[in-house]
């Protein structure tokens, strides 16, 4: 079906258009940094689009992998002399291997039990990052060395804008690719009925594991980019609240959709920036907004918008 193919490519092209336009328009370093954060968190959230939205498995510990990626960017160059630009790959490998090892037993659990198990996993990672002061600098975090390419140190906000935007585009392209393949269908099948899926020949636990590893790798790469672009990492990036924020980003935008992941991340990155004018009331307003949005748009922004346009064009 040729039109399906162009659909995917059109989405990526449209996204590229937005990214390039913003890169041009955004007036100063502050805005570029914010946009960079949006792309990075959107990348992490895309992993959850596959894990939660497609395969139907909740993870409340995703920030743990974000933390692994971030500290890979900090620790590997300072301790082992690895070039900083290689750290996202090594970090992704470590996260993927970790997810593979713990995923088998954890993913046997269902629903709330899976939620608590993933939550515990994220929590353990964050504890290690906080407590192994000798390695990680403890609660204060540590510096991330800047990559140097051809004698130029990569510290410009615009450089990181383009690197993170390109990573997001690649990440989005891969997730969109899954749609309409054997793997993509198997994910959605096991979300709708595990029994039905297994009778169709799908190895349910293996498929879940793949989605889990994929989500871990996405979060890890995002974490590395976060560390590299900020120039420092803290254990907060692996905290439970960060995990919750990632899941909220995914569900807020619409857990099934790639655009939803990006919109949800944009909302949760931008809101605190806007809310800083409210000073002490920031947390309170953030909570209220999350509650109100989830009540009125329970399946997220993108499905609601799609519904609206359908109704208008009918």
């Amino acid at each position: 079906m040729p039109h399906r193919l162009s659909d995917r490519h059109l989405s990526v092209l449209a996204l590229a258009g937005v990214v390039i336009a913003l890169g041009w328009i955004l007036p100063n370093a502050y805005f570029l940094r914010i946009a960079t954060l949006v792309w990075i968190f959107a990348l992490a959230t895309l992993g959850l689009t596959v894990l939660i939205g497609q395969a139907g498995q909740v993870s409340l510990g995703q920030a743990g992998f974000l933390g692994v990626g971030a500290y890979a960017a900090a620790i590997l160059p300072t301790r082992y002399g690895l070039p900083p630009l290689a750290t996202p790959f090594v970090g992704a490998f470590v996260s993927g291997a970790l997810a593979f090892l713990v995923g088998r037993p954890i993913l046997r659990l269902k629903g709330h039990y899976l939620a608590i198990a993933t939550l515990g996993l994220g929590f353990l990672i964050s504890l290690v990052l906080t407590n192994e002061v000798g390695w990680t600098g403890g609660p204060d975090g540590m510096q991330v060395p800047r990559p140097v390419v051809f004698g130029v140190s990569l510290s410009q906000p615009s450089t990181w804008y383009w690197i993170s935007a390109a990573s997001l585009l690649i990440g989005a392209w891969l997730v969109l690719n899954l749609d309409g393949t054997t793997t993509g269908r198997a994910f959605r099948a096991l979300r709708d009925s595990e029994v039905g899926a297994s009778v169709m020949g799908i190895d349910v636990s293996r498929m879940k594991l793949r989605a889990f590893v994929l989500a871990a790798v996405y979060a890890s790469v995002a974490g590395s980019l976060l560390g590299l672009s900020n120039g420092f990492v803290t254990p907060d990036q692996s905290s439970f609240l960060q995990s919750v924020e990632l899941v909220t980003m995914s569900v807020l935008g619409g857990a099934h959709s790639v655009v939803g992941a990006i919109l949800g991340s944009a909302m949760l990155v931008l809101l605190p920036q806007v809310l800083t004018v409210m000073q002490d009331y920031e947390t309170l307003v953030l909570g209220a907004i999350v509650v109100v949005v989830m009540i009125f748009l329970p399946s997220g922004l993108v499905p609601a918008l799609v519904d609206l346009t359908k109704r208008l064009t009918r």
Partner: peptide
């Protein structure tokens, strides 16, 4: 998942 996020939102609030 939506309801869990609502109660998390309440707790943040």
């Amino acid at each position: 998942v939506t309801v869990i996020i609502i109660t998390i939102g309440v707790s943040i609030f």
